[in-house]
Design a protein around this nucleic acid. Structure first.
Lengths: 289, 289
DNA sequence: GTTCCGCATGAATCGATAG
DNA sequence: ACTATCGATTCATGCGGAA
């Protein structure tokens, strides 16, 4: 199967308008968080976040197939000692646009950021919001079945690793091994809580989520040959995984340095240097007309 | 220390008005879920939930000390294939009342209900919302420290040596910093994700949460002798734990059968019989005037 | 070839200080 | 009074080099 991966440089707000309607099976993204990643994305003020995001979600609604799914990874910041309300307000506003708020998954980050404060503990979870256009959407639950027991704690990561091995062996020597180990065990459906560590260091890229995260949702909501979109591509984790899993994909990012990296023109190490230099630091988010 | 446990029969909406202002250190409750627990609570329609709850939260705001905390265990139902929005709307409305939405903990229910649906997985988490009256509130973090992760077992011994050395060399210019931080390195502060199994043992009543849940928050937000309130007592888990931990407590419930049980007049087994018979089934929630 | 150890670092937050 | 910057605090993970 021939798979197409399209990488687009530009502001999602503008670029999405050029994409045809009802053409995407899965949108999965982790947009710049409010006021976060200042050095690479400029940051959007929490109070302006909804107003910034709604034009984009409007376009996403148009582009998504009626059987498709929109997965949004997001978490609200602390502002003035409180959790800010822009995320939950965003849910309400997106429903007014016509989105169905089907589910909220929890991503439990096992290795969360350290720190100690007098009034709160470390934050070790993020929201993964599932939106749909229609009550009827594609879902391939059997593709993410896991061995019984503590499924996600260690299994999910192992699963993805074995899948990689299996892929490699197909391409390479052709030894299909370890499969019997898995099929013999009793398999169960997972829950709506995902336990994944963040791939923090030495990977030399600023991926917002580990590969296993988009992998899980791509398997769950698409089939090979389907179309996956990440409107805030970053270092391209979603697209890399989509390609490996034989899904077509589109990635959009406003920063040329990410485009270069995903296209292989620069290495992850060089990317880090760019980021450290803040060469592309102050991107202005103008908002769509 | 003499501890007082007060059990009140009545509608929280009315009974809360009789309690003095600024008198409670911790409110922790799991209110009747929308449309759930029909047999014992009548159920509140999701669309009416906010309107039903706001008069109560208004009274809770009055009763709570400025240093106190309100812990609300809640999860939205699925209505029409979607997560209903009454919980997130409730957060917004409570903030208008003057509550601060300090934090959202996740209760990960390890052994959640079984089941399978074509469009969603099992729900294995609930929201635990933390509200406060003031940015400054009492929090006793050391009371809920937990053992460090498994990685520490294999690494901590030698690691602690070098860490101490490194710490000393850093501080070498200054004077003796608190080495005590590093001496008991076996315990760490928890995060905002709680992993608790729902209690299946013995529990022949419709307890909404396991004892470990109120225990954790009572330890975290109160000291012995403080006052704890559960305005939807049910079988009295909060009050039982409070008593064991030497906290004064008040429990309110509208169903006589719960009062009887908590006061020891009937056994949990008899309670189940009552519940099954739906003898007190159709409680009307009139709302406060 | 394993196992073990040292180390850097991550979508963070608070409180104090400075302009 | 309000915003901007900075230091202090802290823990799980994976990599690379060593035993």
């Amino acid at each position: 199967m021939k798979v197409k991966t399209e990488i687009i440089l530009g502001d999602s707000c503008e670029e999405l308008k050029k994409l045809p309607g009802n053409s995407i099976d899965l949108i999965i993204t982790s947009p710049p968080y409010a006021d976060a990643r200042k050095s690479t994305y400029g940051g959007i003020h929490p109070d302006k976040y909804i107003e910034w995001f709604l034009p984009i979600s409007q376009e996403l609604l148009r582009i998504l197939k009626s059987t498709g799914t929109f997965i949004l990874n997001i978490k609200e910041r602390i502002v003035g000692g409180e959790r800010h309300t822009y995320v939950i307000e965003l849910i309400l506003e997106m429903r007014k646009q016509g989105w169905l708020w089907t589910e909220e998954f929890i991503w439990h980050k096992k290795n969360c950021y350290p720190g100690k404060w007098p009034n709160r503990f470390r934050d070790s979870w993020e929201r993964i919001l599932q939106f749909n256009k229609d009550k009827k959407f594609n879902m391939y639950q059997d593709e993410v079945k896991v061995p019984m027991g503590d499924w996600a704690k260690t299994r999910l990561k192992n699963l993805s690793k074995t899948d990689k091995i299996r892929d490699n062996s197909k391409v390479g020597s052709g030894f299909g091994k370890n499969i019997s180990n898995w099929t013999n065990r009793e398999m169960a459906y997972p829950t709506n809580v995902l336990h994944l560590a963040t791939e923090c260091n030495n990977k030399n890229h600023s991926a917002t989520f580990p590969e296993s995260l988009p992998e899980w949702f791509i398997k769950l909501f698409t089939e090979p040959g389907d179309a996956v979109l990440d409107p805030f591509m970053g270092s391209g984790t979603t697209n890399i995984v989509a390609k490996r899993l034989k899904r077509n994909s589109i990635g959009i990012d406003i920063l040329p340095v990410y485009i270069d990296m995903v296209k292989g023109k620069i290495t992850p190490v060089e990317l880090v240097l760019f980021e450290k230099k803040e060469k592309y630091g102050k991107v202005k988010h103008k908002g769509c007309k």
